[in-house]
Amino acid sequence: MSALALYQLVAVMLFCIGIYGVTWRRSLVGMLISVELMLNGAGLSIVAAAQLTPASAVLGQLATLLVMGLAAAEATLVLAIIIVIARRFETTETDAVPELKG
């Protein structure tokens, strides 16, 4: 098996652990942590594909940098949403906040 396939398999592992966490976690903060795992899997896959194939390496590394920037923006917004929910419902457990409109 080539080195590229090994790196891609590790990235798939990260992604799947993350998606399992999103379904399994009971609180919004736990889901946020799992989403970060998934984004890391994506970043690792992009860098491996850029560095180990004849494709443009600069493009791949810059794409991963952009993914990191998006992850930071996403974490900021999710933090704000979690704080709003915590103030309104006084909990961040997903089972306790089933309504969308309230």
Partner: peptide, 12 residues
């Protein structure tokens, strides 16, 4: 479906 890969990472 393995992609065509090079064994040594590109230097950037």
């Amino acid at each position: 479906h393995p992609a065509k890969s090079v064994p040594v990472p590109a230097k950037v």
